[in-house]
Design a protein around this nucleic acid. Sequence first.
DNA 1: CTGTTAGCGCTTTCAC
DNA 2: GTGAAAGCGCTAACAG
Lengths: 353, 353
Amino acid sequence: MVTERPGNLTLTEIARLAGVGLGTASRALNGAPGVAAATRERVLRVAQDHDYVASPEATRLRSKTHGRVAIVVPHLSRWFFGAMLEGIEGVLREAQIDVMLYHVGDLEDRRQFFERLPARRKVDAVVVVGFPVEEKERERLDLLGAHIVAAGGQQAAYPHVSIDDLTAGRQAVDHLLSLGHRRVAMIEAVDPDQPFEPSGRSQAYRDALAAAGLQVDPALVVTCDWGGEEGAAAMGQLLSRSIVPTAVYTHSDEVALGAIRTLRRAGLRVPEDVSVVGIDDHPLATLVDLTTVRQPVHEQGQTAARMVLQLLDGKTPQSVTTPTRLIVRGTTHPPAGQIDVHENAAGSGTTAP
Amino acid sequence: MVTERPGNLTLTEIARLAGVGLGTASRALNGAPGVAAATRERVLRVAQDHDYVASPEATRLRSKTHGRVAIVVPHLSRWFFGAMLEGIEGVLREAQIDVMLYHVGDLEDRRQFFERLPARRKVDAVVVVGFPVEEKERERLDLLGAHIVAAGGQQAAYPHVSIDDLTAGRQAVDHLLSLGHRRVAMIEAVDPDQPFEPSGRSQAYRDALAAAGLQVDPALVVTCDWGGEEGAAAMGQLLSRSIVPTAVYTHSDEVALGAIRTLRRAGLRVPEDVSVVGIDDHPLATLVDLTTVRQPVHEQGQTAARMVLQLLDGKTPQSVTTPTRLIVRGTTHPPAGQIDVHENAAGSGTTAP
DNA sequence: CTGTTAGCGCTTTCAC
DNA sequence: GTGAAAGCGCTAACAG
């Protein structure tokens, strides 16, 4: 419990205090073979007493490895990314690997990240969360000389884990269709801070309608930036058009919540007049009784981290697609006037404000 | 643009390629004085061409500093913590400082963190977010030999930034009181994963009632774990008691949302029958028209990071308390009938749509 | 088993 | 100005 210069003795000092050579001290501390039990014991005690820890810089300098991985995320305050981070960090921490965080909030941040590569020579692997890495960026990333894993985005280029947007979207739209809706609108969300990327969730809408023998009516589709307020505005646009939908499919729960607010403010009841479905199963979705498609985000994060571990272990991980599931709650309902269709909702009553 | 072994030449090699000595190369790259312009130019070009970056381990080994700070958070998927993280990371990144992330999700994680001190000898400072550090833990933290800053929690021990819970709570409760409410309930939230800490938000409730000349009725107070579902259950408890409140003060927006769901499911209208107020101004609050007390979380994060920068710069930062502000939206309203009290019939089947 | 000796890649005197 | 040399704290290879 002797502690003066808080825990920064050098190995050499520890060795001297324990009355052994530098090499022996090192071996003892690292559990390397070839040290007498008694000697090891003594060294360990001295180290313990002085709260000794090896200098990571020095250790890493020799060992060529960093024991660190970088996580690159475009957002930090959105639930999806937080949950992903939590999943990744959890298994990495358990493996005693340090996590470095890089936030690339907008295009400029992103450009800088790939140009400066601040993680350069600092990490053994990087996990890219929730955005597709472009060709040019991939070249830069190669310079890191680190393993790369993608989480929450389709990335043919790297081992990755994500949901199938095509399926998730189908689950949402098919649900509306099977309730009997025919005028199904879509609010498609794009991330304004990232390069445009054609979305599987949008394709799913077209596929679902086609499968049901319906035409896509451009008047029923509107695009907005990702986010609740944006979804609310988009719903406003939809309502200003000639044709009013009986159901709205949105790309995310946040957008769905915004849409619902607009609908209610316009005096429309949800779900009696208009049904709304989201994607994600955000923790607050259940609190507002939102029908949605659940994706296991935390789990995806864990899986991504395990893939990193495999990579560091010299193995080649398999990309995985995590399943999604429709969660029927109170914001979807057969269209007004429609005399009950077979499929029933599990949701309980909601209220208009 | 010559790149074979992806960006991992050593300074020695660069020096040789540039036809200069090791020392000169180092000086040139670091913008140190005493290098002929032409020479510096040449070295820079060679380095550029080979995508050279110095080995951080080697550099740090000599320089005794890490250029890294740790952020310790108890939650990652909750908006508050994500926003805080975003604020901190932003200014740190701008200062070219790397961020290491440590999640201490529950008591066990927390114990391990302080016992193992994984950030030991790896960071120049640590930012503790949203939880009070105990005496014992502080001793361990001292071992890090790093600067410490606290964000989002009252920590007399360290420079810190946070809101004043007493004030925030008062703003919420006083609002209800000023609307004319007299039967004001409180759902107080505690973090089940952290040691119990008396909350300023609870004290604010007592203070506000006292100031209004009202008694605290234990039947109107219920405690729950932090979170929406928990808030919903707590509201259920409140409704099962003899006396039904006309207004409910909750410690956070998530809890408020849960409470609202329960109220509506019980057939009570919000705000006509019962008013509800939260704290935080969660981004979704506006989408559900929740009256709340806003705290500038992102900004708190930025401030905390700037404090870190000052500390690293040898200065002594001043702790700061960020102001909060009541945001009146649609979930609060004067009590029904102000005069006539009994028309509530809780739990009956008056279910609105 | 254990002490000694090279470096890991870099920064920083110190001479020239 | 610039090169050579001395470490930063540690691990690994080498002799004892």
